[in-house]
Write a protein that binds this DNA or RNA. Structure first.
Lengths: 152, 152
DNA sequence: CACGAATAGTTAGTGCACTAATTGTTAGCG
DNA sequence: CGCTAACAATTAGTGCACTAACTATTCGTG
């Protein structure tokens, strides 16, 4: 009774047992929780991540941003045009390498950082996390990312 | 030296410290790792989740599926049409309530379950996870989902 | 120097995911 | 009974994310 064996694969198909399901829902739910906070900055969540990358280093090429954000250039290309349209970044060919495109913060883009400083703290609170849990979850996620990328 | 204070919010803006970033990348990476496996079944990852829900219970209305999958009906509607096109489900109005749409597995849809039985084991292996780590991650994700949904 | 391979970015096409607006059905209530 | 409010699904519109195909540079080697 209540025996569980390795070959009990039927239970494995339960939606509630799928890590991929929990992960997808968690990602969507967390992004949704950011939404009202980021609206104050006029950013979507993916755009917020781009801005975080640029606040660390600007200018950067599309390729470099793609590596930092684990995104395809084809995904970033239209996003960066929207950020340019919002007046937060400039898009200019790199002098000396006409292939590469330098994405650089405008003054407004750099200034936005001040208002963004409050976001992480606000979100920690909203997600009922302390810094220790945050740390642990980050480590878990990183391990999972590494394994998943090895698998692909 | 190396002092960290509560108000050190500048560090909080580092991309690498963002749980939301790690979570998004993990979700995308894990889904990408499923892709080659699910291609054998002719399913995308979101479609796979719908099938898991239906293998547990069929028929179900669009609304019920949305609740089980934490998805908007507007997201499911076109997906279900694609699954219908693939011959895996039928879409018929519920007798006695013409508003609701009953989504039901076809024979082919039910039969696909047999081939799906191997997926979870394959993926655990590919993601280098054992059942214990899976369990722990699932618990963490669920907690996060609850908090995020309370926040929204 | 010239030409083919590699590189950087964009475009096209598909599918998800969300919000808001719409259509059609049902239920409740005066 | 009739009318309104609630409900279930769909459609329209925007933005992400990915693959594949394409354009324009640059590099490397004969």
């Amino acid at each position: 009774m209540g025996v569980t064996v390795d070959s009990d694969r039927a239970e494995d198909l339960l939606l509630e047992h799928q890590l991929c399901f929990a992960l997808s829902v968690a990602s969507r739910s967390v992004v949704a929780a950011y939404k009202p906070v980021l609206e104050g900055l006029g950013l979507t969540h993916p755009q917020y991540l781009v801005m975080l990358a640029l606040w660390e280093q600007s200018p950067r090429t599309v390729k470099e941003l793609g590596e930092a954000l684990a995104q395809e250039p084809a995904t970033l290309s239209p996003m960066l045009k929207r950020l340019e349209g919002a007046g937060l970044v400039t898009r200019e060919r790199v002098a000396g390498n006409e292939r590469a495109l330098a994405i650089e913060l405008t003054d407004a883009g750099a200034a936005l950082r001040e208002r963004a400083l409050a976001v992480p703290g606000t979100m920690l609170e909203r997600l009922e996390l302390d810094r220790e849990m945050l740390q642990e979850l980050n480590v878990s996620m990183r391990r999972l990312i590494d394994a998943a990328q090895r698998a692909a």
